[in-house]
Design a protein around this nucleic acid. Structure first.
Length: 473
DNA sequence: TTTTGAGTTGTTCGA
DNA sequence: GTCGAACAACTCAAA
């Protein structure tokens, strides 16, 4: 019987796993997961995310074991060492072929090309699949084959190209003989303990599916109305699972459409809006695949790279610690620091604050988010930051500058979210809580690091000047 | 090729 | 308090 090796990466599940499904057709399957601690460190992957990955690999190992599949856990220093490690594993198993799902990010696809080369050299076939998005990057294009750079036409095309078979998730393969005992990841990798965030972030595909089902059953209908209020549990919070692949976007779309009688049209506002958010994720994956320069620190709008972005380390650290003196900004940053996750509305508020009120380089904010987020994905994080900084595809106009006080009044009207994250402000009445400096301040809480009105004027002036310079050539 | 319509998520100011 | 205009034109996508 043929022997196939499946390499698991950002797809830590057994259901709707094209590579696993493909490998199991008439062959004996073994699985491998490669720990790359140095790569994770260099990439600035968050401790929350690393720990969630480790725990999810353990769950995966158990699931695979029930299917009679053994999961080998190997370690390589970084991506440079990856091809050799995978080859060794394949050869020791006598594998005929290697199966895996593709990743778009630049380092990952370089690594994968190197692996494919090494394998072919050794006479081992390589078969790749796509599952990070529902529609593979590069597949949703304009009639002339070029990529979309504006979301709305992309979404229209995506919806027009939608076919049920894009959405129907694949089953887990049938069990293949006796159950091997599951292997486990180490308790610590580098400085990271596997139990970090254990209470917050439930690992594995079963937890992900439970979360999806409860969201579809009880919250998706009110998603549109409640998604912007960080004090409410209005969003799905499935992003950590999507990031590490304990659930697939197809499974999410399938569940959303099943809740609507299997149809796409005529869904409720809640379902439509949530599906739209999943399409945003697909949009940014397409964008990153079409413009690899985005993964190398370049703005989509090239001319914005020459704006005088700041690098003030002290200002950056105040923002990072959540000590800017602007309550909603600080609440968002502290939510990120303590949980690894931040509500979408606050990602916009804190990102806009960094790029437009502090006029710090948006790349510094992007990198910090990646280093902290449990759900960090290069494509979506970069897309979101460039949107906020007005440097990206289909970005917000440069003069659209969120005012964190106004945003707090609109989206945290009771002040409860700020109170929950910023204990220094917990005793302030709602009418004082968003601008404590106007009411004598609060013990232990800093005064605002910028005057919002002045900062806004300054940013508008810089952009106007930048635009004039760009026109001059 | 030209034309036309449209573009995630805001804020401020003055009537 | 509410409302419309200004912010700034520009680029994209499709007919």
């Amino acid at each position: 019987m043929r022997r196939h090796l499946v390499w698991f990466r950002n797809d830590l599940r057994t259901t709707d796993h094209p590579a696993l499904h493909g490998a199991a057709q008439g062959a004996h399957v073994t699985a491998v997961y490669l720990l790359t601690p140095v790569q994770w460190q260099q990439h600035g992957l968050s401790d929350f995310k690393i720990a969630l990955i480790l725990r999810s690999v353990d769950r995966l190992s158990e699931q695979l074991s029930q299917l009679g599949i053994s999961l080998q856990i190997c370690t390589a220093k970084d991506f440079v060492q990856a091809p050799e490690a995978i080859l060794k594993c394949a050869q020791s198993l006598g594998a005929d072929a290697l199966f895996f799902n593709e990743e778009v990010a630049i380092n990952e696809s370089r690594r994968d090309q190197a692996v494919a080369q090494v394998m072919q050299h050794a006479g081992i076939r390589v078969e790749t699949f796509s599952s990070q998005t529902s529609m593979p990057p590069g597949s949703v294009v304009k009639p002339d084959g070029s990529p979309y750079s504006v979301f709305t036409p992309f979404k229209k095309r995506w919806l027009a190209d939608y076919r049920p078979d894009h959405i129907d998730p694949l089953p887990a393969p049938k069990p293949q003989g006796p159950q091997p005992s599951p292997s486990a990841t180490p308790q610590r990798v580098g400085d990271v303990d596997k139990s970090i965030g254990e209470q917050l972030w439930k690992a594995g595909q079963t937890a992900a599916m439970t979360l999806l089902k409860s969201f579809i059953k009880t919250r998706i209908q009110s998603y549109q109305a409640s998604r912007d209020f960080p004090a409410q549990r209005g969003t799905s919070v499935l992003s950590p699972h999507l990031a590490i692949g304990t659930i697939s976007p197809r499974q999410c779309l399938h569940a959303a459409h099943a809740a609507n009688g299997g149809r796409l049209v005529g869904a409720s506002e809640g379902i439509n809006t949530w599906v739209s958010e999943l399409i945003w994720r697909e949009f940014y994956s397409h964008i990153l695949a079409a413009y690899p320069k985005l993964a190398m620190g370049h703005a989509f709008k090239t001319e914005t790279d020459s704006l005088p972005w700041g690098t003030d380390q002290e200002a950056l650290e105040r923002w990072q610690r959540g000590e800017t003196g602007l309550p909603l900004v600080d609440a968002g940053m502290r939510q990120l620091n303590t949980t690894g996750w931040m509500h979408n509305r606050l990602r916009m508020v804190t990102a806009t604050f960094l790029a437009k009120q502090l006029f710090l380089d948006w790349r510094l904010g992007e990198a910090y988010f990646m280093r902290q987020l449990v759900d960090g994905e290069l494509a979506a994080n970069n897309g979101g930051w460039q949107w906020s900084a007005s440097t990206g595809t289909d970005a917000v106009p440069y003069f659209r500058i969120f005012n964190p006080v106004r945003q707090a009044e609109r989206f945290d009207p009771s002040g409860d979210f700020v109170r929950s994250m910023v204990p220094e402000l917990a005793d302030l009445p709602t009418r004082h809580i968003f601008e404590p400096w106007r009411h004598g301040g609060a013990a232990g809480y800093p005064s605002p690091m910028v005057d919002l009105s002045e900062a806004r004027q300054k940013t508008l002036a810089i952009w106007k000047q930048g635009r004039l310079l760009a026109e001059d050539g």
